[in-house]
Design a binder for these strands. Structure first.
Length: 481
RNA sequence: GGGGACGUACGCUAACCUGGUAGACUACCAGCUUUGGGAGCUGGUCGUCCGAGUUCAAAUCUCGGCGUCCCCA
């Protein structure tokens, strides 16, 4: 281990959230700023979380017949331009490759901001018959989007890591099912593993994916009152099939345009975990996705190290055999207090302290990161205690986050109250007529956008919060990242 | 889209106004010592974003460039 020494977190989460987040990210060694604006190094502490997320999600999609693949990074400009809405939506944030070596290219290449166009150019070749369907592929990759304003590590950057699934189906109904199934996977991943509660629903017309028939989304609430879009699943209809010529012969020997879905979630989720669960001492990682669930810190004076380390190794073996990932922090150039602080910044869920006292008494001190609750446990109970703490912490973290999200929601059909609530931060749940002019007015006057139209719509609507006409939907408004 | 702050060692910062030996803390390296909440002592290594101008002399003044961060919409 060769971590640099760092100072602790010097600001309080609720006093200067932005500075707090920067310190959490850099001092917890999750990321470091790159030389180009909006780029970061994903350091091992954050990349390991990403690998956990990948494992969980891969399990879900592979279990339902999807396979992973990889497509080219560079997209010819002419490909990107084939679907009109799509290119209009993405063109402003594309990085262009204009040279190969010293020679200017005849046609410039886009560095993928998303891969619909390049992938569907292949699909046009691969899909011929109804027997080729459904085609269910996913790729894990990086994408680049030119972000000039307000970048934040993990939350918004010029380059990020994500997965993008692209599936082809014979009918709209099948595509609809796929879209909803994936959104359910996202919800399960985020709520069960990351302990982050979400709202789910449809995007309004103005917020949906460029080129999609409709977009579904999961959204969450950050502690500074801003919403965070955390995963989207789109039914692209036949728009891209038309543009790229993805057709198949059906069972009646008729040529049909295919139905396509795409869906993605990104390393943004790491940012959400840090923001929502972190506290004044540093990050707090949900046990289910923490790369190291328990850290063992030996405490000894010169001459005592042998028996203390022996016991520490035994305990490490014991809890690992019950399925807990652990680390023995046996560096002898750091004091115990220093190690406590460091692991608190990094968010390790459970700390086990073992000193001469514990050796003598046949016990160990176990501390949970989220509440700082400390208990002295007999050796025979250590493994069980750690296991049950993992479950309890995971549940408690979700429950706390869920309560916070619920508290952040203001329900009103009064425009003035909507404005006040937006200013304060959080979601505002209102009835909405469905006209984009009312969305625009809210955005211009408050900065809030329409985050989603909830699946669990009440169906009995009152008057639109803006224009007073009969409402067609419920909608959650909020300022967003 | 609008506004603000800034660029000196890994990091944070002083010297800048009033041009003249780049200094502190932290980190890093070596040794001694210490260890139940970021310990101490001694010694050591590393720095003025880029370009032009003014000047005997530029971290400092002028101009240009590049880049970063924050806030608001």
């Amino acid at each position: 281990m060769s971590e640099q020494r760092q100072e602790g977190i010097t600001v309080k989460k609720m006093q200067d959230f932005s500075e707090w987040y920067t310190q959490i990210v850099t001092k917890g060694e999750f990321a470091d700023y790159g030389p180009v604006q909006g780029t970061i190094a994903y350091r091992p502490a954050s990349y390991a979380i990403w690998e956990k997320i990948q494992n969980v999600f891969d399990g879900m999609i592979k279990g339902t017949g999807h396979r992973n693949a990889y497509f080219p990074l560079l997209i010819p400009e002419s490909f990107l331009a084939k679907e009109k809405e799509h290119v209009k939506g993405f063109a402003p944030e594309v990085f262009w490759v204009t040279h190969s070596g010293n020679n200017e290219l005849g046609e410039r290449y886009a560095v993928r901001p998303t891969s619909e166009t390049i992938i569907y150019s292949f699909y046009a070749k691969w899909v011929r018959s109804w027997r080729d369907l459904p085609l269910l592929l996913n790729q894990w990759c990086n994408v680049l989007r030119a972000e000039i304003k307000s970048t934040k590590p993990f939350i918004r950057g010029s380059e990020f890591l994500w997965q993008e699934g692209h599936t082809v189906h014979a009918s709209k109904e099948e595509a609809d099912k796929e879209v909803m199934m994936i959104l359910d996977f996202y919800t399960e991943l985020v709520e069960k593993y990351l302990a982050l509660p979400v709202l789910s629903g449809f995007k309004s017309e103005s917020e949906r994916f460029a080129g999609a028939l409709y977009t579904t989304t999961i959204e969450m609430m950050m502690p500074d009152g801003k919403a965070l879009q955390s995963g989207t699943s789109h039914n692209l209809g036949q728009n891209f099939s038309k543009a790229f010529g993805i057709r198949f012969m059906d069972k009646e020997n008729k040529s049909q345009l295919a139905w396509i879905t795409s869906w993605g979630m990104s390393t943004r989720l790491i940012g959400a975990v840090l923001m929502v669960h972190g506290d004044d001492k540093g990050a707090v990682l949900p046990p289910k996705i923490a790369p190291v669930q328990a850290v063992i810190i030996p405490i000894y004076k010169t001459g005592e190290e042998k028996e203390v380390l022996k016991k520490a190794r035994e305990i490490k073996k014991k809890i690992e055999s019950s399925g807990v990932s652990s680390e023995l922090d046996d560096r002898d150039d750091r004091t115990p207090g220093w190690k406590f602080s460091e692991h608190e910044m990094k968010g390790t869920p459970i700390r086990i302290e073992i000193g001469p006292r514990d050796v003598k008494e046949g016990k160990a001190v176990i501390v949970r990161r989220d509440t700082s609750e400390k208990r002295s446990v007999p050796d025979s109970d250590i493994a069980n205690t750690v296991l049950s703490l993992i479950e309890t912490m995971q549940k408690d973290m979700f429950d706390r986050a869920k309560a916070n999200m619920k508290n952040s929601i203001t329900e009103t059909n009064d425009y003035k109250k909507l404005c006040e609530a937006v200013k304060k931060g959080g979601f505002v749940l209102s009835d909405w007529c469905g006209d984009s002019s009312c969305e625009i007015k809210i955005k211009e006057e408050t900065g809030a956008t329409n985050r989603l139209l909830p699946f669990k719509d009440m169906k009995k609507h009152g008057q639109c919060v803006v224009c007073g006409k009969n409402a067609k939907h419920q909608a959650y408004f909020a300022r967003a990242y």
